[in-house]
Design a protein around this nucleic acid. Structure first.
Lengths: 225, 225
DNA sequence: TCTCGACAAGAGCGGTGCTCTTGTCCTGGA
DNA sequence: TCCAGGACAAGAGCACCGCTCTTGTCGAGA
């Protein structure tokens, strides 16, 4: 039975997280200030510390929420059953769309690590969700026979068993070369989005929408999707 | 004729930049503090402002120096004339090696943009150096006949003329599809390095050295190198 | 020799994260 | 019903930040 006191406490904690998210969208992670959050909520800066242990702790909560939001967007964009290539493109577009809508949160997840901050273990499962979606597409394609047979090479010292499980699991069509390409594609998806968001494509790519689609298409082709 | 006064001024300015670089390696770009630089050099914080107009200006200098250092490393790793695939791998390895030796400077260049800081135009030429090296390899491969003929498609609304010039220029073996793959490979190189440096491969890739080589090999193969 | 400019240093402004103390108010148990 | 204990807000304070303004010094060139 949630106490009245406990309920209002949870509400205020949620309000602090919301205000922090708004601030994150405006000034970025490095500019996130508990004092500004307190100002926005009309409370003393010291009062915030009754609800949030520290700035880093608030950051962890924002990171987990952002990973979950991004993961949900990726999952929602992938209704299983369609052709693998279209599923791949749909998920990639969803990830890019989320990143463009939440650039500061994206930077928090995939940009420079915040100095002095070490992400705790509870951020790992939410962080894996996008990878799970992409890996499931590859695995489904293998099981439905949409991938050519492969040599079945397996090098346990190169890619971990956990990663193999995510990347479609064990299957005759999934050998180490495919998995290397899959991890490369995964890195490349976020590499292209980061390059676009962080301004490295300015002056080179004129139509980023079409370029992204073509680039993701090339990645899919490289995977045999 | 450099005045004695001007000489000592240039020396102190260089000392400030060096101290800032050391500080960058310790606390990252967001934690870079002119006061700490002043402390390290044994001068008053206000005295630093006689040599550096602002913190952002110092950041610009560090960015340009880092781009130049990385660009020089990439150029030094590419003695032209060898087989394109080996040149490609050598340059990629050099970029990764530089990134691992200077993780904070790499994050400054390719990580999250520093909030409130906007890179001025003079950072663009140094930033282009790695791309020039990679593009030259592609162009040399095309001109030496190591690439298959292509359709020669050219879409001026997709990729800028400047980028086309960097990516080997106009050649029958270089059409828009190749250029898309080249830009994708460029993004993927930094995507994989960022993923490794920023911790996204922890738990998935066990041997990052070998994985990087194989991934870069896949990228080269995708380009026909 | 003397003037002027470059310089260092200190004080100060408004901001930050975070802590400690003080005083208030509400809730749950006797 | 009353009261003790705990949750709470707020203020002051510490050390830090970027940056500016003023003051005083010192040396190079006219």
């Amino acid at each position: 039975m949630p106490n009245a006191r406990e309920r209002v406490r949870a509400e205020i904690t949620a309000e602090i997280a919301d205000a922090a998210r708004r601030q994150l969208a405006e000034v970025g992670a490095a500019g996130l200030s508990l004092r500004a959050v307190a100002r926005e909520l009309g409370m003393a800066s010291s009062a915030v510390y009754r609800y949030v242990p520290s700035r880093d702790d608030l950051l962890t909560r924002l990171i987990i929420d952002a990973y979950d939001d991004l993961g949900a967007a990726a999952e929602a964009a992938d209704p299983p059953g369609g052709p693998p290539r279209q599923r791949w493109l749909a998920v990639c577009r969803a990830v890019r769309g989320w990143a463009r809508e939440h650039p500061h949160e994206y930077a928090l997840l995939y940009g420079s690590p915040v100095p002095g901050y070490r992400a705790p273990a509870e951020t790992v499962p939410p962080a894996a969700r996008v990878g799970l979606v992409l890996g499931r597409i590859l695995g489904d394609a293998a099981r439905s026979g949409d991938l050519p047979e492969a040599a079945g090479e397996r090098d346990p010292a190169l890619i971990s068993d956990d990663a193999v499980a995510i990347l479609g699991g064990e299957h005759p069509a999934l050998d180490e070369a495919v998995r290397v390409r899959a991890l490369l594609a995964w890195s490349a998806v976020f590499g292209t989005i980061s390059f676009e968001l962080f301004g490295h494509l300015v002056g080179s790519v004129l139509d980023t929408d079409r370029w992204f689609d073509r680039a993701m298409g090339e990645l899919a082709a490289g995977l045999g999707l």
